[in-house]
Nucleic acid binder design. Structure first.
Lengths: 198, 198
DNA sequence: CGACAGATGTGAACACTGTCAACATTCGTG
DNA sequence: CACGAATGTTGACAGTGTTCACATCTGTCG
C-alpha cells in the first residue's frame, strides 16, 4: 500500500468533507484550515491550492449546507403519497416542505446555521437545487390545482419563505425570551401561512 | 490634564461602546479584544477584568444590539398618532412595529446580525426591554380592541414574529436566489401576517 | 490619619491561527 | 521523453485569545 503519495488526489473534496463533519458536530465557527489540513494529513498551506482563503472554505461549506437543506425539502415533498385529489395533494406537499424546512433546522441546527451564515465571498459555482426554487414550484403547483388563488401567486413565496425561515431561526437561536416548544409552534405557523396565502 | 491615570475608571462601558462602534461599521466578526484595548488605550489583559472571554464580550454586544432593536420598535409604536378609533389605531401600531423590525434590519444589517448571532454564553444580566414583549403587547392590544379574534391570541405572536424575523433575515442575508426588492416585500409580508392572524 | 484588602491595570509569555513566498514533487501532454 | 502546470512542503510572519505574576490604585476600618 502506498504509504503517503506526495499528491493527495482529491484534497478539495477531502477538505470539504472534513469541514462538513466539523460543522455537523461542532459548528461553523470552529472551522480551522490547519485543523482540517491535519485531519486530512496534509500541510496547512496545501489548502491554499483549493481555497484562496478561509472565507472561501466557509462559503463552500455554507453552500453544501444549503444544498443539504434543499435535499431534505425535496425528500419531504416526494414522500407524499401520490393518491387522492390533486388539489389536496398539492396542499399537503407544500405543508410537508414547510415542515421539513423547520424540522431540518431543529434537527441539524449547526448545519442550518452554516447554511445562512453571513459571508462576504461570492462563489463562482452557483448553488445547485435551491430551497427557494422547491418552495416556489410547490406554490405554483397549488395555484394550478386551485388551492391558492392566482392573486396570491406573486407574494405567496416571500410570505411562506419568511414565515418558515423565521420560525426555523427562532427555534434554533440561542437567546430566548422564554422556552418555546417547537412541535406546537410549527403547526401554528404552517396554519398561519396557509391562511396568509389563501 | 491627567496624562494617563493608572485606572481607566469606566473600562467596561468604554469597551462595550467601542465594540458597538466596530459592529456598526464593520460587523461582529471583526471584534478583537486587542483592537478594542488599543482603541481605549489599555493593555490587552485589562479587558479580562471585565469580560471573562471574547465570547462574553460578543454576548454583551449582541444583547446591546437586541436592546437597540427593541428601542426602534418602541419608537415606531409611539410615533403612531393617538387619533381615530382605538381599533384602527391598534392595527396601525402593530403594523408599524412590524415595519420597524424589518427596516431596522435593512438599515443596520450589521447590528441586526449581531443581535441574533449564535453565541453559547449565558449572560447573568437578562435583556431589558425585549422586542418579543413589544410584539406580544401590541397583539394583546389588538385582541382587546377587537381587531384580532381571541382564538388567535395564542398563536399570533409566533406567527407574526416568524414572518417579520424571517423577512428581515432574508433581506439582509448575503446569499441569494435572485435580487429581491425590499420595500415591496415588506408590505406583502405584513399583509400576509394580517390575514394569518385575522 | 494610616494600613490593609480588593479591585483594577501592566508586561511578558504561550499556543494557536491565517497567510505567504520559495522550493519540491508529480501529472499530463506536446 | 521533456517540459510546463498542478499540487504539496517547509519555514516564516503578523496577529489573536488567554494566562500568570506583578504593579498600582481605591475604599474601608481601626
Amino acid at each position: 500500500m502506498a504509504e503517503k503519495p506526495y499528491h493527495h488526489g482529491a484534497l478539495e473534496l477531502a477538505l470539504s468533507s472534513a469541514a462538513m463533519e466539523v460543522v455537523r458536530t461542532s459548528g461553523i465557527a470552529d472551522l480551522s484550515l490547519r485543523d482540517l489540513a491535519r485531519e486530512v494529513g496534509v500541510s496547512p498551506s496545501a489548502t491554499y491550492r483549493h481555497f484562496p482563503s478561509r472565507d472561501h472554505l466557509v462559503a463552500r461549506v455554507s453552500q453544501l449546507a444549503r444544498e443539504s437543506l434543499a435535499g431534505a425539502l425535496l425528500g419531504a415533498r416526494d414522500a407524499v403519497a401520490a393518491t387522492g385529489a390533486l388539489k389536496r395533494r398539492s396542499v399537503v406537499q407544500f405543508r410537508e416542505i414547510g415542515r421539513a424546512y423547520v424540522t431540518f433546522a431543529v434537527e441539524h441546527p449547526t448545519l442550518f446555521e452554516a447554511a445562512f451564515t453571513p459571508c462576504h465571498i461570492r462563489l463562482e459555482r452557483a448553488d445547485d437545487p435551491s430551497a427557494w426554487i422547491v418552495l416556489v414550484e410547490a406554490i405554483d403547483h397549488m395555484v394550478v390545482t386551485g388551492a391558492v388563488p392566482a392573486v396570491r401567486r406573486k407574494d405567496a413565496p416571500i410570505i411562506a419563505w419568511s414565515g418558515v425561515h423565521g420560525l426555523a431561526q427562532i427555534l434554533t437561536a440561542s437567546v430566548w425570551p422564554s422556552g418555546i416548544d417547537a412541535t406546537g409552534e410549527i403547526d401554528a405557523v404552517l396554519d398561519g401561512i396557509s391562511r396568509a396565502i389563501s
